[in-house]
């Protein structure tokens, strides 16, 4: 503060010309003082401690509520005539599934972790395709008034078709269960990606378009340098909805197409009346779906740093 102030005084009191370097430094200081610099970020250690504290505060109620619900469930299903298994029964019957996700006893007798991975692989392909095609289509629809008018009604109709309704058609078209399952995921996940991307691109501020116009950015440059970063918050909203939907679709699709995935496992367990296994599988699916959602959300936060705060 004081050094800058002294230099500033120098500039103001000396009517004659200062050595240019001193003047420049003083002027720079002057500017820095006048235009308030945002405060320095807090130390990482402090942030981490605060984060842990907040984590405990948030997790504790969830833990209590879960325990209470398990207790109610145990009481409700403990009678001899209960149609669903109680938690204690599930633990006894399906302990291997819970404790060992990655065992392999035979081609169809494998841990749920392996099944989840198989399903995730399908989702990765289907959702990956949906993300790429969805962003490109969304960019087209968002950028061109004509494409919007032509394609939007079709999108609006098709997106209401339930995932499973696509399955017979895709089975007929692909004549194989594996690509059919992937197609069902693709067609389920693509709509929110298209629609959100289109909205994001329609909302690109005119200022950014003007900047691009003055710089004479070509189409590819405009797409990568302006469109994608500017629409990123919207795109990631679409991707987040899309990954949730594709995880919903995989289970349904696998129930019908068979194979190794988690969906087929549920169907198989139902056919052999292993209700406990189904409950365990449901929990796996829920946890994985939650993690997927968080991963996409985290990627979104990472990718849109700075974009949201213009």
């Amino acid at each position: 503060m004081s050094a800058a102030a002294v230099k500033l005084k120098l500039v103001e009191t000396h009517a004659g010309p200062l050595p240019p370097r001193v003047a420049a430094v003083a002027a720079a200081e002057h500017v820095r003082k006048a235009e308030a610099v945002p405060p320095a970020p807090t130390k990482p250690a402090v942030v981490f401690a605060r984060w842990i504290g907040r984590g405990i505060a948030q997790a504790l109620p969830a833990l209590i509520v879960t325990l209470v619900l398990l207790l109610i469930w145990e009481l409700a299903c403990s009678g001899p005539k209960a149609s669903l298994p109680a938690p204690s029964k599930i633990w006894m019957e399906s302990r291997d599934l819970i404790t060992q996700p990655f065992f392999v006893n035979g081609p169809q007798d494998i841990g749920l972790g392996w099944r989840i991975l198989t399903s995730l692989q399908r989702v990765a392909i289907g959702f990956g395709l949906a993300a790429i095609v969805g962003v490109l289509m969304g960019a087209l629809v968002g950028q061109s008034q004509w494409a919007m008018r032509g394609l939007d009604p079709i999108f609006q109709v098709l997106r209401t078709v339930p995932p499973l309704a696509w399955l017979p058609i895709s089975l007929a078209a692909f004549r194989d269960s594996a690509p059919s399952a992937i197609f069902v995921i693709f067609i389920t996940a693509i709509w929110p990606v298209i629609i959100n991307t289109a909205v994001g691109i329609r909302n690109i501020p005119q200022d950014y378009r003007n900047v691009a116009a003055v710089l004479r950015l070509n189409h590819a440059e405009f797409f990568w340098r302006i469109m994608i970063p500017s629409a990123a918050p919207y795109i990631f909203t679409g991707l987040r909805i899309g990954i949730g939907l594709s995880w919903l679709a995989i289970v349904a699709a696998e129930m019908l197409t068979g194979g190794v995935g988690i969906g087929f496992f549920i169907w198989d367990a139902w056919n052999s009346s292993k209700l406990s296994d189904i409950v365990v599988a449901l929990i796996y699916i829920g946890v994985v779906g939650f993690v997927l959602d968080r991963i996409v959300a985290a990627l979104g936060t990472l990718a849109t740093r700075g974009t949201a705060a213009a």
Partner: peptide
């Protein structure tokens, strides 16, 4: 531009 129009990303 009046509102600087810097690209925030």
């Amino acid at each position: 531009f009046q509102n600087h129009s810097l690209l925030p990303w």
